[in-house]
Design a protein around this nucleic acid. Structure first.
Lengths: 164, 164
DNA sequence: TATTGTTATACTCTATAACTATA
DNA sequence: TATAGTTATAGAGTATAACAATA
């Protein structure tokens, strides 16, 4: 009886609309129970908050994450960097070019491998990373202000276990 | 001492690389501790898995979610629908147009409000929703197979509390 | 042959501004 | 004046294919 599982055909204990969202009185029970949907919504809310806080700085999340990995791994190559952050090589290229154009990163040809360029932060890059780190710390604090520290860690742990 | 909080300057108990991700040996401790980063990675992993499963069907997640809300709320308007799902009116228009072009939804002018169009599923729309529901159920099961049911509910609950 | 980096390209998602028609 | 829907457009994010240089 496949239709028992369909949206609009409530069955079992009705969970009701999730606390605090009026949604103009619409029934959204089905999507509200999906991890994928909730992930997208939460991720979008995070992105909007960060964008508002970082407006005008040019410090997009992906750029700050790249700066942080380069800082922790001086001389890292673009492919390595991309693999670590889940960004394809082909997309790392223009991102790195922007960091270089903004004088936050220098690209140095490797002496041991002629194909590779090694990435390092400039002094401006270190300063930009400090600014980005503060932006993100404040942003994370705002968005998780209704979670205590164990809950925050629990959320991180559960997110790590998605899909593996 | 602001630099104490900077990536590349480990402090406190080192958490180490998260279990199971080799990352080519790179240090990514800083981003690994961020909710925003983990949300983006988890959301991307979910999107990739669903896209592979739904390839060729045209049943994008946003379209299935729209079908589900229309099914549960027959006659819903486009603005209401968008508000319920976090999609702007301006972006609902082309999505609805596609559902209509695919004969999954009909748009009927409201008799009580000349500005409004009321959305209803066609028989094909009901069938497409059934197919999409199954795709998403299987997809959610795959991606959360390492979580038990209490953990799954706990994750949903924590995600709801982000940013509010 | 495989890997690093590049270019070109395209599609999705999201956002703003400006418009219409109705209320 | 506010709301429902539309059009046009632009920016990010992400994807594939094809290529050059090097290993």
């Amino acid at each position: 009886m496949i239709h028992d599982n369909l949206p609009g055909h409530a069955h079992g204990a009705p969970v009701g609309p999730m606390d605090g969202m009026s949604d103009h009185e619409l029934d959204t029970d089905w999507v509200d129970q999906q991890i994928g949907y909730r992930l997208r919504r939460a991720s979008a809310a995070m992105a909007a908050d960060y964008a508002a806080a970082a407006a005008g700085t040019g410090l997009r999340p992906v750029l700050v994450s790249m700066l942080s990995v380069i800082a922790a791994n001086p001389g890292v190559g673009q492919s390595e960097l991309g693999a670590a952050l889940g960004i394809q090589r082909t997309n790392v290229t223009p991102l790195t070019a922007q960091l270089e154009a903004d004088r936050l990163v220098v690209r140095r040809p490797s002496r041991t491998d002629g194909r590779k360029v090694e990435l390092h932060l400039t002094d401006d890059g270190v300063a930009a990373l400090a600014a980005g780190t503060q932006l993100i710390a404040d942003h994370e604090e705002r968005m998780t202000r209704h979670l205590d520290e164990p809950e925050r860690r629990r959320l991180l742990e559960l997110l790590e276990r998605i899909g593996r």
